[in-house]
């Protein structure tokens, strides 16, 4: 009898644990859906009052007189993201190639935990460092070099801080990708008389290319959403930036700076929700696009 009871107990416990994990999985999938639905519902108020085209392509942002043009924020975000990728992508790719192809084994062994630690530094610290080092550097050295008198709080400062932040994130992915290229493929290329550099350029990078592109895409989506460090050095001026030395106001900063302050104005509240929705969709787009690139390259 005891034996049977034990078996039954074990069976129930099995069912319990299985369903528990299923619930965790469903919650993980369900919460983002609820989140998007909430954002859409909240931003409907604004969308009913203003045409979407005007919201996206007008640069007139004066919430108190109920004019909401998101263009300055969207343009700022794009500037900062693309610029930070232009700074960090070559650095990451060359570092990853060096570490996997040229460096001694112990260097890579040391660099692995170092990169992980870099990736774990809280972003606010990068923000403070940006204010203390990057902003004065741009204001005192780089700006005058180009004949400009600037405060230093600028698109460039944001992009620079951001690129430092996404480097460990992308570098980790790139190292794994390049390490995954089979040795035999390199041997094949070398045995045909290719030099090491030709092998890296024509075979290793070519083989890892879909992954490289998608890691840049994932880095971009991360950069696009990064808030606090950028907010601290970018100046937060609502105007379409026309140069890298000018201040900008990216979407995440808009939400973080203003949410909770102006909730008495329903349309303003709704506008910030729309900003969050745009942010969400753009990041989603980057991710889907980089996955699509992988898929296309793999079938080729």
């Amino acid at each position: 009898m005891k034996h049977i009871r034990l078996t039954r107990y074990r069976k129930w416990r099995n069912v319990f644990h299985q369903s528990w994990m299923m619930i965790a999985l469903l919650a993980m999938l369900f919460i983002p859906l609820v989140l998007v639905a909430g954002l859409i519902m909240k931003s409907m108020l604004l969308l009913e009052n203003h045409p979407l085209f005007e919201l996206l392509f007008s640069s007139d942002w004066s919430p108190l007189s109920s004019r909401f043009g998101f263009l300055p924020f969207i343009v700022s975000s794009l500037w900062i993201t693309i610029l930070s990728l232009l700074i960090s992508a070559p650095v990451c790719l060359l570092t990853a190639i060096h570490l996997t192809q040229y460096a001694k084994r112990w260097v890579l062994r040391i660099m692995h935990p170092v990169i992980d630690i870099l990736a774990g530094i809280p972003s606010v610290i990068f923000g403070v460092w940006g204010i203390l080092v990057i902003v004065p550097f741009i204001s005192h050295q780089l700006g005058p070099l180009f004949g400009k008198s600037v405060s230093g709080y600028s698109i460039l400062a944001g992009a620079f801080v951001l690129s430092i932040m996404i480097i460990p994130f992308m570098l980790n992915m790139l190292i794994e990708l390049i390490k995954a290229v089979p040795n035999e493929l390199q041997e094949a290329s070398l045995s045909l008389g290719a030099s090491k550099w030709q092998t890296i350029k024509l075979v290793v990078v070519r083989k890892a290319l879909p992954g490289i592109v998608s890691s840049f895409g994932l880095g971009m989506s991360r950069a696009f959403g990064e808030t606090i460090a950028v907010l601290m050095v970018v100046g937060n001026v609502t105007r379409i930036p026309t140069g890298v030395f000018q201040p900008g106001y990216p979407l995440p900063a808009l939400i973080a700076n203003n949410y909770g302050e102006m909730l008495s104005i329903p349309l303003y509240d709704s506008a910030l929700m729309l900003a969050a929705l745009i942010l969400f969709l753009v990041v989603l787009m980057f991710n889907v696009f980089s996955r699509f690139l992988i898929l296309k390259a793999e079938t080729h």
Partner: peptide, 15 residues
């Protein structure tokens, strides 16, 4: 290396 052609255990066509 150009004096020797290598054929490996498994074919590794270049990408």
């Amino acid at each position: 290396r150009q004096k020797m052609g290598l054929l490996a255990q498994r074919p590794y066509p270049l990408p």
